[in-house]
């Protein structure tokens, strides 16, 4: 009796998950369909870096994308510190590997917009990717936020704000958050000038540190064709 009940429960549970998976895959397909309208783009923007140990000026950047998942973030003038996980700024990256299980994780709100929360579990558990959580605006079929957890490179978070390029699913503003490691030079190595100014309190070294870059995109050139050389 107990064995039968357990089997029934398991069958019900599997059916339930599949039902949810189908619904949410449909939602994801809507998002993907929107993104698929764009075969390539070149975008101009300004990148602001918020990392405790980097005091960098706002940089003019160019973003390049080509289907299916070629992406490049380049500084237009001067030196740049480009976060290594910036590939995930490209939303198509989420769909580049279609082999994942979708789990609905309820509803949420982002800036007064109701969103569906989906968790994407990769079927291949040998890769670096552990879990991607996406927050989708079901009305406009837009990803407003995504959080990617990796085995080796910590957690990345993306927050998107849409405006002029909403119909293509391309954001006007991206906030990309990532984990950073502590940066400490040995005292005396830099022969610094002690100007007697007040020092900030020492940062705790065992607390995981967060870095953030904010890209405000001013102009997209969509589906005009991009050379593969840009991505080298």
């Amino acid at each position: 009796m107990i064995k039968i009940s357990f089997r029934v429960l398991l069958i019900i549970l599997i059916c339930h998950c599949n039902a949810f998976g189908q619904v949410n895959n449909a939602l994801l397909k809507n998002v993907q369909a929107k993104l698929d309208k764009v075969t390539d783009y070149e975008a101009e923007g300004k990148m602001k870096t918020n990392v405790a140990f980097l005091k960098l000026p706002i940089a003019k950047v160019k973003l390049y994308f080509k289907n299916p998942n070629k992406f490049k973030l380049k500084s237009e003038n001067g030196m740049s510190f480009v976060p290594k996980g910036s590939m995930s700024i490209n939303l198509n990256n989420i769909f580049s590997n279609n082999k994942f299980t979708v789990i609905e994780a309820g509803d949420d709100k982002i800036a007064n917009t109701n969103v569906k929360v989906l968790k994407l579990l990769p079927d291949d558990d040998t890769g670096d990717l552990v879990l991607t959580t996406v927050y989708i605006d079901p009305v406009n079929a837009l990803i407003l936020k995504s959080r990617t957890t990796t085995k080796e490179n910590g957690t990345y978070e993306l927050q998107m704000t849409y405006g002029n390029y909403l119909k293509y699913g391309l954001p006007d503003k991206i906030i990309f958050s990532f984990n950073t490691k502590d940066y400490k030079l040995p005292k005396g190595i830099t022969f610094d000038f002690d100007d007697g100014s007040t020092q900030k309190s020492a940062a705790k070294t065992n607390v995981p540190k967060k870095g953030e870059i904010e890209i405000v995109i001013s102009k997209y050139q969509i589906n005009k064709g991009i050379s593969n050389d840009v991505f080298k």
């Binding site: 140990f53 940066y183 030079l185 005292k187 005396g188 830099t190 610094d192 020092q199 900030k200």
Partner: peptide, 21 residues
């Protein structure tokens, strides 16, 4: 010519300043 990086230690903090060229 390029932007310049200044490596600095101030108290317990280490950081990098970037000055445009």
């Amino acid at each position: 010519q390029e932007d310049m990086l200044v490596f600095r230690v101030k108290g317990e903090e280490s950081f990098i300043l970037q000055i445009t060229k």
